[in-house]
Amino acid sequence: MNLAEGVQVVSFGVLATMMIVAALGVVLLNSIVYSAFLLGGVFISISGLYILLNADFVAAAQILIYVGAVNVLILFAIMLVNKQEDYAPVANRWLRKLAAGLVCIGVFALLGTMVIATDWQIEPTNLTAAAGISSVVKIGQHLFSDFLLPFELASVLLLMAMVGAIVLARRDFLPADLSLTNQTTSLTLPEKSKELAALGGKTK
């Protein structure tokens, strides 16, 4: 084992430990804010693992999209629904947790046995790196030739998701709440509701 392989194995160990511990923290911690920050840790560790797998572009995209967008979105959602509530106790909750844990360990054992028992046809060398081609060039060639249609469909999907999220999350005042809408506190946003505008048009 030369120096480069040793560095690879050590960094893989560090990143894998970081990822598993942070993922367990995301699932098991009580405070949802700590969970959100640990989720960022999981994403950064996975980005490091991608670099170990010779994928520089996807590692950068992982940090940009997951840590920069999705994690910030989750933090905003936590701030918007941040209500300290004590959940009502549910009967036999420990039994559910135990059953879920057993099923998860069983699934992990099954997958692990399958991974170890299978004879993978591993290529001896990394052909893209050996040919001196950057993975960015390769990904660009794929995205604009044989994956062009999915690439364009992804943009349509993102547009649809944006419109859908706006439509779902917009405040709509029901006509029963009309008396409430006139009281503006310092916390309400100065926005005009659809139904009020429609009613105003009807009476005139």
Binding site: L157, M160, A161, L168
Partner: peptide, 16 residues
């Protein structure tokens, strides 16, 4: 990753 970003946005809107 693209679909996950869209899913996160729509899912958080539904939760809101």
């Amino acid at each position: 990753i693209t679909v996950a970003a869209a899913e996160a946005a729509v899912g958080l809107a539904i939760i809101l």
